[in-house]
Design a protein around this nucleic acid. Structure first.
Length: 463
RNA sequence: GGCUGAGUGGCAGAGUGGUUAUGCAGCGGUUUGCAAAACCGUGUACCUCGGUUCAAUUCCGGGCUCAGCCUCCA
């Protein structure tokens, strides 16, 4: 039985799909004006893990993750760079896909773009105006009338009185109420724009997600997700727009992942304390980042640090080491007791840290098997790799992982060079010239290569 | 100021009303020419003060500290 923490009710709930056997999930994706940082990586990896698990336990999943390709930041950045909006957004969409692929993220079933859904956006705004939930301001901007939706604030646990009392809500004269938010912005000269019943303009940020989610998944769907910072106002506004325009229920379950922190502070563009995915990939294999992300619960804060990445690397190295001489078979069923355990942890609000402890347990059992081709050993290895596939881990060839270059250091020895040193050392060893053998080994260690002497010969790995 | 969430062993990080998380690091051992890897063994951890209870790190209340949202943000 799958239980998911629903931000709307602030508790774990037993998941009941709207349509038996099917799950529809919408996740707020990236605004493509810059490279993805580790915080974005967390969203991609977390919801990928969720989609994988839902599929693994038998659901037919439709996963939609949007791309925001028009907004103020994009316009500003394009102006700064002196390039067109589309040049800019296409460049960063490509970069995002590269990062996403590197992290082992299975592409969502659909990645709708705001600019390609203007009709749906305009239709929804028209419906809101018609139903008196929105109005056209004196400047021809269209605003949503927050006071017209009595459940406003349910998701974020805020009430409109307190929000109005808050000093930080900026007062804009065009709005009837400071809480009202923009649905359609009329275009200033030189700005990209689309025709609408209210003149040339572009959509506000929140409306695109309401329009695209309901367009792709229907008015009422199962899961809506995103980073915790979107809970208010973005998701709150989405609910208001969708419910008021369609008259139907919107998302049943709201999932919000926690932040990535740097020195106990949220990693964010505005604070400037972010690390881009490709920056981290210079020093670490992508799977290390993925493992790092999954090693804490998706709702907990995740502290970004070199120490923590190193720890993820060690743990993952241990798992791959166990798989190194192991045999995996497609003809063997994963061990049922472990599968039950694994699934019960995943079904408990996607408790990946717990499932990783199962991975370690299996690796230990596998290491204990003296005969790696025994049925028992094959079962452990097969089960381990199967769990890895649900988490999006451990799918590389073990030696490929253990010997992979990280890419940032051009001085790294290549495989041929390493093998030459190993051969040289083997000769020295055979001649019982241990001083020389040790000298070669020390030299390799200083170059980041560790050797292991095994009955089958000397093998190596990169540290 | 309002609203969330959190405070676990050297570090990271789950979890639980009474029984081993797990990983990294450390220590002892097995193995090894020596190592490495692996295995075995090894840790009086649960912010603070009250309360409930036979029993609380776990439930309730107060306090302290931290993070987040209330403005663009994954």
């Amino acid at each position: 039985m799958l239980k998911i923490y629903n931000s709307l009710s602030r508790q774990k709930e037993t998941f009941k799909p709207i349509e038996p056997g099917k799950v529809s999930m919408y996740v707020c994706g990236m605004t493509v004006y810059d490279l993805c940082h580790v915080g974005h990586a967390r969203v991609m990896v977390v919801f990928d893990m969720i989609a994988r698990h839902l599929r693994n336990i038998g659901f037919d999943v439709t996963y939609v993750r949007n791309i925001t390709d028009i907004d103020d930041k994009i316009i500003n950045r394009a102006n700064e760079n002196n390039e067109s909006i589309t040049e800019l957004t296409e460049r960063f969409i490509t970069a995002m896909n590269e990062d996403s692929n590197a992290l082992g993220v299975v592409p969502p079933d659909s990645e709708p773009k705001a600019t390609e859904h203007m009709d749906q956006i305009i239709d929804m705004i028209s419906a809101l105006i018609k139903k008196k939930h929105a109005y056209v301001g004196s400047n021809n901007d269209v605003y949503f009338d927050v006071s017209s939706f009595e459940n406003y604030g349910n998701l974020s646990g805020k009430n409109t009185e307190e929000l109005r009392a808050g000093e930080r809500v900026e007062v804009q004269n065009e709005k009837d109420d400071p809480l009202d938010f923009v649905l359609w912005k009329s275009a200033k000269p030189e700005e990209p724009s689309w025709p609408s019943p209210w003149g040339e303009g572009r959509p506000g940020w929140h409306i695109e997600c309401s329009a695209m989610s309901t367009h792709c998944l229907g008015n009422h769907f199962d899961i809506h997700g995103g980073g915790q910072d979107l809970q208010f106002p973005h998701h709150e506004n989405e609910i208001a727009q969708s419910v008021c325009s369609t008259g139907a229920e919107f998302a049943n379950v709201w999932i919000h992942n926690g932040f990535v922190r740097v020195d106990e502070e949220k990693m964010s563009k505005s604070l400037g304390n972010f690390f881009t995915v490709r920056e981290v990939l210079k020093d670490y294999q992508p799977e290390v980042i993925r493992f790092f992300i999954l090693s804490s619960h998706y709702r907990s804060p995740l502290n970004y640090s070199i120490d923590n990445l190193e720890e993820a690397k060690s743990a993952l190295t241990g798992l791959y080491t166990a798989l190194r001489d192991a045999h995996v078979s497609n003809d063997i069923e994963p061990k049922k007791d472990y599968v039950d355990q694994f699934n019960s942890f995943m079904n408990d609000d996607f408790n990946t840290p717990k499932t990783i402890s199962v991975l370690h347990e299996l690796a230990k059992e596998l290491n204990r098997c003296s005969d790696k081709s025994s049925k028992e050993a094959i079962e452990y290895a097969t089960t381990l790799k199967y769990f890895g596939s649900v988490l999006g881990l451990l799918q590389d060839e073990p030696q490929a992982f253990l010997q992979a270059k990280t890419g940032s250091d051009d001085n790294e020895l290549d495989e041929v060079a390493v093998q030459k040193f190993i051969d040289e050392r083997s000769e020295a060893k055979a001649a019982k010239d241990y001083a020389k053998a040790d000298e070669i080994r020390d030299h390799l260690v200083s170059l980041g290569i560790s050797l292991e002497d095994t009955p089958q010969g000397t093998i190596w790995r990169r540290n």
